[in-house]
Structures are given as C-alpha cells and as structure tokens.
C-alpha cells in the first residue's frame, strides 16, 4: 500500500482535473499507470480513499505512540505513512492531569463552603441594589 497522493505531491482532496495533470506530469511510468488505474476511476478511488484514511490514522497513532519502527510496520506502508513524532503528550497522562485538576477544584469548593459563599455574594448584591434605588428615589423627591 503506497500513498499515491504523496508520491504525486497532491492533497487527498484533489479534484479530478488536478489528478489528471499530476499524473500527466509524473515521470515514472509504472507509478503513472497505477495512478491512472486507481485515482482516475471514481469507485476505485473511493475504495482507495477509505483505506488511505484508515492507514494514515494508524500512521498518526504509531507516531504518537512511538511505534514507527515496529516489526509489523515495514516496506511501502512504513515509508509512505510514517509521520515525524509530534509532541502531542500522552492522552492517558493528560486524562490523569485533568482528573486531578478537577478533584482539586472540587476540594477547594468544599473547603470554602461554596454554597454559603454564593448566598453571601447574592445577598450583598441585593443590598447594594436596594440602597441605590433609595438614593435615586430621594434625589427625585428633592428635585
């Protein structure tokens, strides 16, 4: 399984016209014949694209998990679908971080007696509003 798009320097979303011109420009006759047979016929291209998506997903997974040199990842596939290791951190570590963060937030909330804090803030807001209302009414009466 080779990545024909990469070998023809195309994007996988290239339209029919772009593919035709890229195939015509390609100097390698074997590759040209294969690309003509696969990419220029709609139903074959569809089948190829589905597999291409899956294999590029696997390539991305392997890059993130450090498996780009596995015993089962050899030949054309490994050449065409291996990505450079990106610096995405481990999803599991990230999950653990987020859970511990959520836990610490929750604990802080409990410690500060969150509900009471909320009620106090609401009450003081109401008191300030009342005071402002009184002041306005007084001003109107005097004026």
């Amino acid at each position: 399984m080779r990545d024909l798009y990469q070998r023809l320097t195309l994007s996988p979303s290239a339209n029919h016209q772009e593919i035709r011109s890229a195939v015509a420009r390609c100097p390698n006759s074997a590759l040209r014949q294969d690309a003509e047979a696969v990419l220029e016929i709609a139903e074959r291209r569809e089948a190829y694209d589905t597999l291409h998506d899956t294999v590029s997903d696997i390539g991305r997974l392997r890059a993130r998990l450090g498996l780009t040199h596995g015993a089962h990842w050899q030949g054309d596939v490994a050449n065409d679908f291996s990505l450079p290791p990106d610096n995405a951190i481990s999803r599991h570590d990230e999950l653990v971080d987020r859970v511990s963060h959520a836990v610490s937030l929750y604990n802080r909330w409990r410690r500060w007696r969150g509900p009471w804090l909320l009620i106090t803030v609401f009450a003081s807001g109401a008191a300030i509003g009342l005071a402002m209302g009184f002041a306005l009414a007084l001003g109107l009466a005097l004026g």
């Binding site: 399984m1 294999v55 498996l67 596995g70 990842w73």
Partner: peptide
Amino acid sequence: SLANHYILRFLADLLNVVPNTL
C-alpha cells in the same frame, strides 16, 4: 479486510507480539 490487516498489525506492535507469534 485490508484495513483490519493494518489494525491487527498495529495492535500486535502495540502489545509487543512478534510477527511469528501473530
């Protein structure tokens, strides 16, 4: 299926299963 060929091999690499065993 072709996709499962690659997925199975990915799992084998992930779990340190050598080609012979697989």
